[in-house]
Amino acid sequence: MFYFLGELSGQISALNVFKYITFRTGGAIMTALLFVFLFGPKIISSLRLRQGKGQPIREDGPQSHLLTKKGTPTMGGLMILSGMIVATLLWADLTSPYVWIVLGVTVGFGLIGFYDDYLKVTKSSHKGFGGKARLGLEFAIAGLAAYAVTLLDSGPFSTSIAFPFLKDLVLNLGILFIPFAAFVVVGAGNAVNLTDGLDGLAIVPVMIASASFAMIAYLSGNAVFAEYLQIHHVAGTGELAVLCGAVIGAGLGFLWFNAPPAAIFMGDTGSLALGGMIGAIAVATKHEIVLAIIGGLFVLEAVSVIVQVISFKLTGKRVFKMAPIHHHFEHLGWTESQVVIRFWIIAVVLALIGLATLKLR
């Protein structure tokens, strides 16, 4: 909405600032932050009243969680998504198809997560939406988004993947790009979902990844910067930086209430939506492999679960004391704050490595 004020810069020169992506990204951060600060307490009170016992806590998890986290409401992702959507609609260029594609994935995954949270709360069980049906819906949404992205560029690069550190290596997958991109989006969504197990553990790495992809989207969408850095230019993706800024602002507001001891949990409503959003941006900007580096913490969490399940089914033995891996470290004696802060540090280091690929080519 505010973007169109830039069209009046011919009459009022000061309005030209609304054309700048950097300015509107800053505006989106502040808008989303203030939205969550203003409406967060009311949302928490409403969810606490409606949910009663709050999010069910796994009985096979760390015993301390049964004491410290019992009764805490979930679906806090509603706070984040509301702030993000409002800020994006106010500050982004709504003529950009990339904005609508990523918003579509975010809202679609958010609805799936909301239904999953709803089932958990109403049934008082940590088991929610059936796995096959849930994955089927996720792949349908992600597949449609991937197909839409390929339509925005008629050239061969629309179905290609680029490799970090190697500027000339591009692999054209053709029609196979759509299932590959869908896998990236679904994988990112579920990886973030698995990471969301401790107070503040998921939201800060999500903000770090969002900040990283805000920079990647801005640089990839700018022909001059893309040529200088020798990365592939994807026209129009710069506008996704505004959306990433909205996530950062909403995430900061949510962290205020999610800081230990958490007044609310993100739930699948938020974690699945935010993970899918990051995956969709990675696909749009042609940085799918870089996502595995920047989001390496999420990958680690997902791999730990996969390894644990395969090992137990094949040998009857567990590799970790408990999966996802953050619970393993809790069982080793790390306090919750130690796990969270150390994982934050890992997320920062991985993000820096991922951003380094923009120049090291």
Rank of each mutant, 00 (worst) to 15 (best):
V204N: 06
A226K: 14
G249M: 07
G245C: 05
E239M: 06
A217K: 08
G238C: 04
G200Y: 08
I248T: 08
N222M: 07
D199L: 01
V206N: 02
A241H: 00
L240Q: 07
T237P: 15
G249H: 08
F213R: 10
D196R: 11
Y228F: 15
P205M: 06
N193V: 13
I208V: 12
T195D: 09
A250C: 02
A191E: 09
L240G: 03
T237G: 04
G200P: 14
V224W: 03
F213E: 01
H233W: 12
H232S: 07
G238L: 00
D199R: 05
A202R: 05
G251W: 05
L240K: 02
L194A: 11
A241D: 12
A209W: 01
L229N: 03
A246V: 03
G251I: 04
S210Q: 02
G245E: 04
A226P: 14
V242F: 06
L229S: 06
G249W: 05
E227D: 07
L229Y: 06
V242M: 14
S210A: 07
D199A: 07
G249V: 03
L201T: 13
A235D: 13
A209Y: 03
A202Q: 14
I208Q: 05
N222H: 12
I216Y: 03
G236P: 09
N193M: 10
A217M: 09
M215H: 05
N193A: 08
T195F: 05
G221E: 02
L240T: 04
M207T: 05
A223H: 09
I216C: 00
F225E: 11
A246C: 13
D199E: 03
N193S: 08
M207I: 05
L194P: 15
G200E: 03
I231M: 11
A217W: 07
F225M: 15
L201D: 12
V247G: 11
L201P: 15
A246Y: 10
L243V: 10
L243G: 11
S220I: 08
G197C: 13
Y218F: 03
I231F: 10
A217Y: 02
L229V: 04
G238P: 09
S210L: 02
I203T: 08
G245Q: 04
G197Y: 10
L194C: 13
E227F: 08
H232Q: 09
I208E: 11
E227V: 05
D199Y: 03
A226C: 14
L243T: 09
G238F: 01
L198H: 15
T237E: 06
I203W: 07
H233F: 06
A209V: 10
G249C: 07
H233D: 12
A235E: 12
A250F: 06
C244W: 03
V234Y: 11
A241I: 06
V242T: 15
A250K: 00
